[in-house]
Design a protein around this nucleic acid. Structure first.
Lengths: 343, 343
DNA sequence: TTGTATGCGTTATCAT
DNA sequence: ATGATAACGCATACAA
């Protein structure tokens, strides 16, 4: 414990720099001395001090994770574990570790990020969300610090690394699907309008209606947080309208579960009275009763690719920004009525 | 970017050490110079380099998280996000960040931990599980490195910081509950026997049977992983016995969901044909159909307290090891038949 | 192929 | 109350 490169050097009768080179497996060191030095290392139980190395190196081999400020809630949503799994896998492949910023308010999170960046605790950052006019994103952009966004940046999206789904198309497709199933009164239960993903999906929803010459009704559109309770609330609003929707496009599984629950409480049958579709296709979508039709957005892949992009731009900082679209797929289950498409 | 303490010193006409003191808000610096220095800091946009500080300080203000080697699977289970939420909250309160070790095999994880520890990347570690004869735990113990275990250490449990539930009692209580409901053929579907939590719960289960003079049958006890598929498998084994159980003590919500699914596939009604209880009381327990009776083990609290214990032993290394029991509660729902206890 | 010297950005120990 | 200087442990340009 506390054995340094110097101790090893002394024991092996070489200079500290030589030991350093052996650790780095520098080819210009003779096999002979490598052996000797490694022996000494083993004997003393030497392990390089990562902090010192980072300082000399100016690299931390760590990437920072920024969750929405309401991380409290975020952790409840299966999206995050899954995206983390993807990021973690890629990071592991390249021997990077993950540093999670903690912060409850937006301001705290912002300062935590500034601390990470200026303090050189991380070599790059993955933003796990994309908000309209996000302070943290603006900061990273101005600093030209390596980062990737999961989702589509609100602006400068051609200059910022990001990986996203084609949310416009996905929402359009799932709305089309309801229309094909004969629905004309279709509701939309989306996340906060501050999230870019919400506006993208809303546009897709609108486009599908427009194509089918169904007029858009603002009272059919609800914005809420990604949580079970919020899904309930949305339903209680929608279903007390004069002409309540017969199908619902919900943009999150957790919300959708709340939707199902509330519909059940109100005595409405899914899919007979109301068809429901959702996004994310988390495990719970398959396990719920009735099973949820949900758009699989390949969350793991989003995370994995985001990390990949980031690591690229860390290793060669001059490379131009990359964008990636991850594919989606509607997984049809009971909640939307038909398993096979009608013509 | 890249502005150091020296730049600030120069601009403010003081020595670097003075700037350092101002940053630390050392009381023996005059308010006058503090003001002057802070002005310079603001003007230059100075932020302390965390790595350099760590090196000089010999403290990283980070705590390492060690997941089971199969982190891949672990992330699927709601247990981890929730325990992480607890840890994260406490860490945040004390301005520590979280470093996640990545590693797919046991050996990789071990080396990742050694790297964290010897490399002084973290000041302490939270072990998110407790296995029989765990190599990592042994290592940390021998190194006398600050760490906390969530769960009960296999040995030296009086010398190791840990926070745990009274799993023996919890399992006994939930088994008693089934017995009170009139069941005599009670199955046990637990996790791997390598996990201490499994043996604790198994003992509680056995004790309850013994008290009720019900003989223990080894064919009623199944060990599986914490996953939906494994729950299915367990049921298919148990329900093909000559005298299949009429009640099941399952030790994980995810497994329990698999159990429900398989029972349904086999045409068995819950709770009419089979009563099911579970552990963890994750959100899915409440949302499943039928809703799962589940032992709430206060996962968030486990995480929060584990971090608290750890931070204590980091700040004063000489303090004696602490143990903490977090309380549990059986949340009765439909899957176990009766909402109110019989007498 | 290996050693020497210096820097990485702070903090801490002396002085003054 | 402040300054000079030496750690902290490693990497690297330059020498040899």
């Amino acid at each position: 414990l506390g054995v340094t490169i110097k101790d090893v050097a002394k024991l092996a009768n070489v200079a500290p720099s030589t030991v350093s080179r052996v650790v780095a497996n520098n080819p210009r060191i003779s096999e002979e001395t490598k052996r000797k030095v490694r022996e000494a290392m083993d004997y003393l139980g030497y392990h390089p001090n990562f902090t010192a190395r980072s300082l000399a190196n100016r690299s931390a081999r760590a990437i920072g994770l920024v969750m929405p400020s309401s991380a409290e809630k975020a952790f409840q949503n299966p999206f995050f574990p899954e995206v983390l799994r993807g990021i973690s896998t890629k990071a592991h492949e390249q021997e990077y570790t993950l540093l999670m910023s903690t912060g409850t308010t937006e301001d705290e999170t912002y300062r935590a990020v500034v601390g990470m960046v200026q303090g050189r605790r991380v070599d790059g950052i993955v933003l796990l969300y994309s908000r309209v006019d996000d302070r943290i994103m603006n900061y990273l952009f101005e600093q030209k610090f390596p980062f990737t966004v999961i989702g589509k940046p609100y602006k400068h999206d051609d200059q910022i690394n990001h990986v996203d789904n084609d949310n416009y198309r996905a929402a359009k497709e799932v709305t089309d699907y309801h229309i094909k199933n004969g629905h004309e009164r279709i509701g939309f239960v989306g996340g906060s309008l501050n999230l870019v993903v919400t506006t993208d999906r809303l546009l897709g929803y609108e486009k599908a209606l427009q194509n089918a010459r169904i007029s858009y009704k603002s009272e059919y559109v609800i914005h809420a947080d990604f949580a079970v309770e919020e899904g309930r609330r949305a339903v209680s609003e929608l279903m007390t309208l004069d002409a309540p929707p017969t199908a619902l496009v919900v943009t999150d599984d957790l919300m959708a579960l709340g939707v199902l629950r509330m519909l059940d409480d109100m005595g409405l049958k899914v899919p007979d009275d109301v068809s429901v579709s959702s996004f994310n296709n988390a495990m719970i979508a398959d396990l719920s009763t009735p099973a949820l039709t949900s758009v699989d957005i390949n969350i793991y892949e989003l995370g994995y690719q985001a990390a990949d992009l980031l690591l690229h731009s860390i290793e060669k900082p001059k490379s131009s920004p990359q964008m990636l679209k991850v594919k989606h797929e509607i997984i049809k289950r009971q909640s939307s009525g038909t398993f096979n498409e009608k013509e």
